[in-house]
Nucleic acid binder design. Structure first.
Length: 688
DNA sequence: CAGACGACATTTTTT
DNA sequence: ATGTCGTCTG
């Protein structure tokens, strides 16, 4: 007998929180200012909160969750989309502590993670294998390489774009929702004559993903969007459940994500976006700060609330940051002010003779601050590029200052971790062609071609672990059999996961030593730490999904593992510092060409984005702010670096200059001597 | 066809 | 400093 589904409309009348009856609003009123309070209590309809840096954006979201839960809304009816999982968890823990433990159970996470969850659930609705594989960026590049080679473009043209360029072109087109031709024309004019071939690669890549059930990051969003657009019953089911949808960092969403927000909130229409157009720093990922301006157009009758009172920074810091954002060509109407932190120390601009001096200055200043009782975890060093801190890291290690670094290479992107994870992937999904490809090439005598041939066999083999039935040369049959038997045995019993991993590590270790003989011990330590992460998981599926969707910073893992007592100092890229704050912030390498990045120079739009990036960095500081750059930079040849053009445009009254003088080499002062800083006592061990 | 070696270019930021 | 490409050898 055929069964039909009858969809009931959301029953608002009966589910409605008994308006504010059970909620003690005084608690909220006393903790929030008027604008924040309004944002928290405006629960119905569309709401846009334009929140300047440090104006209590997170607090507002946190309290809003608390308020909804205390009003009787069930946790599974609230969705909070954030930029990182870290951000979501922090908010939920906070909400749980002041309001109700149920706060911890609301739906949420990143767009990608939430999309992933829904797609697993509804995969069958869009002809997607339930055990589809999520490709991280490296996987995506490797896949593109496979189709590129299959198309023969690897030898044909000398200057054919490389796999990561191809990946970027394709991804940019998706994220900005523009044709690939346009991306090439705008950003990669040198490849314009090859447009047709690039399009062929893009098509082949899409087909390859579809036949092999592979989804890259962009697919997670676009597949969900397509599903919600075309399957109205699914959309209705999902959106009915989501009575309240909240989106953090809306200025960094792209068009696809904006569409998703609309689709997810299409039944109830209770959607809140929080963001700051002045802090939009992800245009390279398709984000457009104009999205936030378009929000009211997309959702008619949007109520707009502005948060402009800053609680984070001192008046001196705010004056400087306000002047920075005023340099933007596209102006923003924002006027941050402070009532509670008047005055303060002038921010300092530090011209260090070279990078070594810069590092010594920072290390020494941090030690002084610690003496004064500022905890290390209240201090951060920020930089434009992850590698800008290498010299400083050496200095910090030398002085035994513990630090955690965020940004830069992700643990799963390191080749040896990727190798190891591939074994796990093959256990999870024996048809994971990409993972097979990787681990097969680790065997002696198997190169790209043989690996590809074997992968083709695996695709249809009745038992992919049973290589005896494959038609392979005896040269490597033994090695294959050994691998196959190991995997077959492990797949019989996947728990405990940590035991499986240890067995695999034993198998992989000799390969690792052979392949990376130059630095295998460092890599072995990485793997050891990685097993520590694995130990927290019981489900292989969850582990693999988390690795793809919430990549862990390699060095963060490394340092966390070695930390003992003192809570560490933070080193972070500006991008990874979003939403965070510290008592003291150092921003290093503020050079023209670094920030603004030399790749951004030329276009007003990208220069503005670099300026916003600087703005984000400076607005992280609560009390002390140091901006530094080396005068002499090292490269193939040493050269004179120019301070960032943004610094040169700052009014001189808003900062003080700091000149570093080595205590051993007292130099004659040229003009009025700025404040001097004494170098460390133990400088005798420095190479001067 | 695998693997080693040398030339060459190439360097953001992240889910 | 690193990865990628082409070329050569076995």
């Amino acid at each position: 007998m055929p069964t039909k589904t009858f969809l009931l409309d959301a029953d608002d009348a009966s589910e409605m929180p008994s308006t504010k009856s059970g909620v003690n609003l005084e608690k909220y009123q006393s903790a929030l200012n008027a604008a924040q309070f309004e944002a928290v209590t405006t629960t119905e309809g569309a709401l846009l909160v334009v929140a300047g840096a440090g104006t209590g954006k997170t607090k507002t979201l946190t309290y809003r969750v608390g308020h909804l839960i205390e009003s009787g809304v069930a946790a599974q009816n609230i969705l909070l989309l954030t930029f990182t999982r870290r951000a979501a968890q922090e908010m939920l823990v906070r909400a749980a502590s002041f309001a109700d433990t149920r706060c911890a159970h609301i739906l949420g996470g990143t767009f990608h993670a939430y999309a992933h969850k829904l797609l697993r659930e509804y995969a069958s609705k869009i002809n997607l294998a339930e055990n589809f594989v999520v490709l991280d960026q490296i996987d995506a590049e490797d896949t593109i390489e496979i189709v590129r080679t299959a198309l023969g473009f690897n030898k044909k043209e000398k200057r054919f774009p490389k796999k990561n360029t191809l990946q970027r072109i394709i991804s940019t087109a998706t994220n900005k929702q523009i044709p690939i031709e346009e991306v090439i024309e705008n950003s990669y004019p040198q490849f314009f004559p090859l447009t047709d071939d690039i399009l062929k690669v893009a098509d082949a890549y899409r087909d390859y993903k579809r036949t092999n059930s592979l989804l890259d990051y962009d697919d997670l969003l676009t597949h969900l969007k397509t599903m919600l657009e075309t399957q109205s019953d699914v959309r209705h089911r999902i959106a009915s459940q989501l009575r309240y949808v909240m989106v953090d960092e809306y200025q960094d969403t792209n068009l696809v994500q904006a569409d998703l927000v609309a689709l997810l909130s299409s039944v109830h229409g209770n959607v809140m976006a929080v963001g700051d157009d002045a802090q939009s720093i992800y245009s390279f990922r398709g984000a457009n700060f104009r999205n936030i301006l378009d929000f009211p157009k997309r959702f008619p009758n949007t109520k707009i609330i502005k948060l402009e009172e800053n609680y984070r920074s001192t008046e001196r810091i705010l004056e400087l940051t306000n002047s920075v954002i005023r340099q933007a060509k596209e102006k923003f109407s924002k006027n941050l002010y402070t009532k509670i932190k008047p005055g303060g120390e002038l921010p300092a601009i530090v011209a260090a003779p070279d990078e070594r001096y810069q590092s010594r200055f920072i290390a020494q200043r941090i030690l002084e601050l610690r003496e004064k009782g500022i905890a290390l975890n209240q201090i951060a060093v920020l930089m434009r590029n992850s590698r800008d801190s290498f010299d400083l890291e050496l200095e910090l290690k030398k002085r035994n200052l513990p630090f955690v670094k965020y940004g830069g290479q992700k643990i799963v992107e390191a080749a040896h971790i990727k190798d190891f994870v591939s074994y796990l992937k093959v256990l999870y999904n024996p048809r994971d062609i990409l993972a097979w490809n990787r681990i097969l090439r680790l065997l002696d005598g198997i190169g790209p071609k043989t690996a590809q041939d074997l992968a083709d066999w695996i695709k249809t083999a009745p038992n992919p672990y049973h290589f005896a039935t494959a038609n392979v040369s005896p040269k490597y049959l033994d090695a294959l059999k050994k691998l196959g038997t190991l995997l077959a045995n492990l797949s019989q019993n996947l728990s405990p996961l940590i035991a499986v991993s240890e067995t695999l590590l034993k198998y992989y270790q000799p390969i690792l030593r052979e392949k990376y003989y130059e630095d295998f011990s460092k890599r072995e330590k990485d793997l050891e730490n990685f097993l520590g992460i694995v130990a927290n998981y019981t489900s292989l599926a969850t582990l693999l999904a988390d690795l793809a969707l919430e990549p862990i910073d390699l060095s963060a893992m490394e340092t966390k593992a070695t930390l003992k007592d003192e809570s560490p100092l933070t080193l972070s890229t500006i991008h990874s510092a979003k939403g965070l704050e510290w008592h003291t912030v150092f921003l290093i390498n503020v050079l023209d060409g670094t920030i603004p990045s030399r790749y951004a120079v030329g276009e007003t739009e990208s220069i503005d984005e670099e300026l916003r990036l600087l703005y984000v960095a400076l607005t992280r500081a609560k009390n002390l702010l140091y901006i530094s750059y080396p005068i002499i930079c090292k490269g193939a040849e040493d050269y004179f670096g120019n301070p960032s053009r943004f610094l040169q445009a700052m009014p001189e009254s808003l900062y003080e200059k700091l000149l570093l003088v080595d205590s051993k080499q007292v130099q004659p002062q040229l003009s009025a001597p700025p404040r001097q800083l004494q170098p460390p006592e133990q400088d005798h061990d420095l190479p001067f």
